[in-house]
Amino acid sequence: MSIFSFHYRLERHALRFVIAIICVAAVGGMVEIAPLFTIGETVEAAPDMRLYTPLEVAGRNIYIREGCYACHSQMIRTLRDEVERYGPYSLAVESKYDHPMLWGSKRTGPDLARVGGKYSDEWHVAHLNNPRDVVSVSVMPAYRFLKRTALRTDDLGRHLATLRKVGVPYTDAMIEHATKDAIAQATPGTDDAGLQERYGGATQIRAFDGNTGEVTEMDALVAYLQILGHLTDAAAKEQAAWEKAGAAGAIPTAAGE
């Protein structure tokens, strides 16, 4: 019996045809997605991995809301030029707590996976306010309204609680203090001991938008940008390790170092 005569009969039965479509179409996804949960090495170990603070979560949501991902990737590929330009290639673990991931598919602007700490807060504020003030040829939109829009912080506890439901290990204390922590992170001088205790001593506490008065959306977005690439050192450590292994005096060091 040829496939054609088999099909000749199949195409006379709507339900059988439907079932055939579902079965044939389901295979690919199952084989490619399910093992990503079972193969251990898919997501690297990173004991130092830290969580986004409530302020950074809020900033990330603004990044999503404004569609920054439409122009910026957060994924440094395993290609020589990308590593040289943007830093160590991205590891899966670095976006482990990213619901959803923001790897992106288009680079109208540069990759942002490791932009955290690369520039100053002032620069980000000036740039977001009007990119052409600092980069004359930029085609990035101006986000002037961020600085004049107060950040909504009252519901951050619920955001964290929801994130916990999908697997991010926020503690009860983190959820309870989310609003307070967000304000504290953008308002140096207030009670931030709890914040540091919950999210680690390296938590950046600053008036990110240059204004201690009000916590704005600019504070949140800049706080998020400044943490990009710094949730874990795993990638840098890995790079240091293989560089050392392969070095043997290969990489020249400058005088005075």
């Binding site: 395993t78 290609l79 020589r80 590593v83 040289e84 290639y89 293989w242 560089e243 392969g246 070095a247 043997a248 290969a250 990489i251 020249p252």
Partner: peptide, 17 residues
Amino acid sequence: DQRRTVEHKLQQAAAHA
């Protein structure tokens, strides 16, 4: 393995700087 490949390329680039 793509990671080893790029590492190797970068090491080579460094070695033959």
